[in-house]
Design a protein around this nucleic acid. Structure first.
Lengths: 138, 138
DNA sequence: ATTGGTGCAAAGGTTTTGCATTTAG
DNA sequence: CTAAATGCAAAACCTTTGCACCAAT
């Protein structure tokens, strides 16, 4: 455990669901000598140890500090990714059903819900000319 | 609509959930002069027109010819991806719940179920030394 | 001393871009 | 004829690898 690793871990927790490059940019301020390769190495170690979950999107891989089963609410307008935990029972249902219907033994799942978050929907009604920030999500 | 495009479309339907490179390898036999760039261009056009859905995994982007809401059963042993349609009601539940709980207007969803398919589970009990094909999935 | 982390540069792989040529409608 | 598709090469990106150096036990 080094200061660099701590800084990287901190950024993953502080930032929403950052990419490696976003973590790199953030820690660069405090550790100007650190290279991108170190960030990748550290993130990969954390993934192997089960502390982080990599989420591949079309534009980039993002890292989720929430490794428990949950859904990701992904706003197609602002790009923000929010964890949503109100679907444990649904995920359990899927597990049972996959086993019964397809003989599939479920180990893990990923559930991404794409749409418009409450904030962006509010902006739509108040100002339709509001520039919607380009979504970082594919 | 050109013969090349037809061949590419055919491959996406015939193969499970191929990557661009896999489609390229397959059409190469009948169109030896075709380049990878053409395959990418064609696949992107099909995605824009809503005929195909890109599924980003850590190792590659795969293309799904099933654009209706469904789950993907992804075997962590053999890597096969199977569409699973037995969860329409569950997806509808999620849509309603996301709207109620988080004010989130759901437009689209992606549901990936990772685990072991029936075939690979059968192999486990019969021969534990059976070489499990390396999963093409991250 | 040995293990592991860091930093740098280079390599590998995937996807996109630019442009000239060919083809379809 | 006009617009679009193709093929090729090069570029842009993201991620990994190799290796030397440094730090910690």
């Amino acid at each position: 455990m080094t200061p660099q690793r701590l800084a990287i871990a901190r950024e993953v927790l502080v930032q929403d669901h950052p990419t490696a490059a976003e973590v790199y940019e953030a820690v660069r301020d405090r550790f100007p000598t650190m290279g991108l390769a170190t960030v990748y190495a550290t993130l990969n170690v954390m993934v192997e140890r089960g502390l982080l979950r990599p989420l591949a999107f079309e534009s980039a891989v993002r890292f989720d500090a929430n490794v428990t089963p949950h859904a990701n609410l992904i706003c197609t307008a602002c790009g923000r990714i929010t964890d949503y935990d109100g679907c444990d029972d649904v995920l359990r249902t899927l597990r049972d059903r996959a086993a019964t219907d397809a003989g599939f033994e479920l180990e893990q799942q990923r559930l991404d819900l794409y749409g418009r978050c409450a904030g962006c929907m509010a902006m739509d009604v108040s100002a339709s000319d509001r520039g919607q920030s380009h979504s970082p999500i594919a």
